[in-house]
């Protein structure tokens, strides 16, 4: 059972290096069960989705990407993907609201598109979130358009997320009136509603956890709905608390380990035992730090979800594995 049954728009953010795009992709797969249709959007021009799913670079159009994670009855849904770039979004916006076909091209020639999308602060973000908003507002009356049960947005990093989503206040100082302001207001209404949840991805290190805490405070201050904290790249849990303590304090019986190994395999050397003990000690030290940071995360007062670090790296199989864990833990 999902912890977020009313949420239609899942925004995924996280500090660089925490695996936010991986989490967004796995979440889309997890949400696309039981015939549900999901749209996975990226807005940072990195083509990360195409690389993760090993497909050609995505255009500014919704493409079928992958079958989702099947439910217990084996029924899956479909994940579509969309790469949103601000230039295309602006041209589409102008065409849709102002019938600016030819004039739109003139704008491009004067460098205005470039100007409006990269320079004019906030406008770029309104255009990006505006496209997500448009996809979220579709319903059965929109002919020939895909409709989605859920949308996952691979959003900018934690440090910029409140600014990105809070485009309204960003714009307030500049565009006090005008159509882009009206558009921003509509987008804000969706982003601030219970239909949206902003999930923050972190790893169990001091700085990302601190940024996550700061991000939650900023989102709350901006009136944006905080979702869960996804703790990514969690180290293996092969040693229990007692064993970790034993290893950390150096209180291990090397002779016993050597004897146990010798019963199971040949060629056990002193070097092997020493190496295993040293590796386990490194791990235990790191785990102690992780546990301390995990306690900080638990104290943030939002639901948390733990995803393992997979030694083989991320491919489609790994994404499905993570999706299954998300569903099990109630993120999807």
């Amino acid at each position: 059972m999902s912890d977020w049954p009313r949420v239609q728009l899942h925004v995924v953010t996280g500090k660089g290096g925490t695996g936010k795009s991986t989490v967004a992709a796995a979440l889309a797969l997890a949400l696309a069960g039981s015939g549900r249709s999901v749209l996975l959007c990226e807005v940072e021009g990195r083509q990360g989705i195409a690389r993760m799913f090993d497909v050609d670079p995505l255009p500014y159009a919704e493409r079928r990407l992958a079958r989702g994670l099947p439910d217990a009855g084996g029924r899956a849904g479909q994940v579509h993907a969309l790469h949103i770039d601000p230039e295309s979004a602006l041209l589409e916006y102008l065409a849709m609201y102002y019938k600016l076909g030819r004039a739109g091209k003139a704008l491009d020639r004067f460098g205005v598109i470039d100007f409006a999308t990269t320079i004019a602060p906030g406008v770029r973000d309104v255009l990006l979130t505006g496209k997500v908003f448009e996809a979220a507002q579709r319903n059965a009356r929109n002919k020939d358009a895909n409709t989605y049960d859920a949308i996952v947005l691979d959003a900018p990093p934690t440090g910029r997320i409140a600014q990105f989503l809070g485009v309204n206040s960003e714009l307030a100082g500049l565009a006090r009136v005008g159509p882009i302001k009206a558009q921003a207001d509509k987008v804000m209404a969706l982003l601030r509603s219970p239909r949206t949840a902003v999930h923050l991805v972190t790893v169990l290190e001091e700085m990302p956890v601190q940024e996550t805490a700061d991000g939650i405070a900023e989102l709350r201050a901006a009136g944006l709905p905080v979702g869960g904290v996804v703790v990514n790249l969690v180290r293996p849990r092969d040693l229990g608390p007692g064993a970790l303590e034993e290893v950390r304090t150096g209180d291990v019986d090397r002779t016993a380990i050597a004897e146990e190994l010798t019963r199971a395999t040949a060629g056990v050397t002193r070097e092997l035992v020493d190496s295993l003990v040293a590796e386990a000690r490194d791990h235990a030290v790191r785990r102690a730090l992780e546990d301390a940071q995990h306690a900080v995360v638990a104290g943030l007062g939002v639901p948390t979800y733990d995803l393992p670090r997979l030694a083989g790296g991320i491919d489609r199989g790994a994404l499905l594995e993570l999706a299954a864990i998300m569903r099990e833990q109630g993120l999807a």
């Binding site: 916006y93 102008l94 102002y98 600016l100 004039a103 739109g104 003139a106 704008l107 020639r109 004067f110 205005v112 409006a116 004019a120 406008v123 500049l174 565009a175 006090r176 009136v177 005008g178 159509p179 882009i180 302001k181």
Partner: peptide, 18 residues
């Protein structure tokens, strides 16, 4: 003519104040 299209469109999108 080109410029008036441009400023016209910008006014529409951003508003005259900007």
């Amino acid at each position: 003519a080109g410029l008036s299209v441009v400023t016209g469109a910008l006014t529409k999108v951003l508003g005259a104040q900007v």
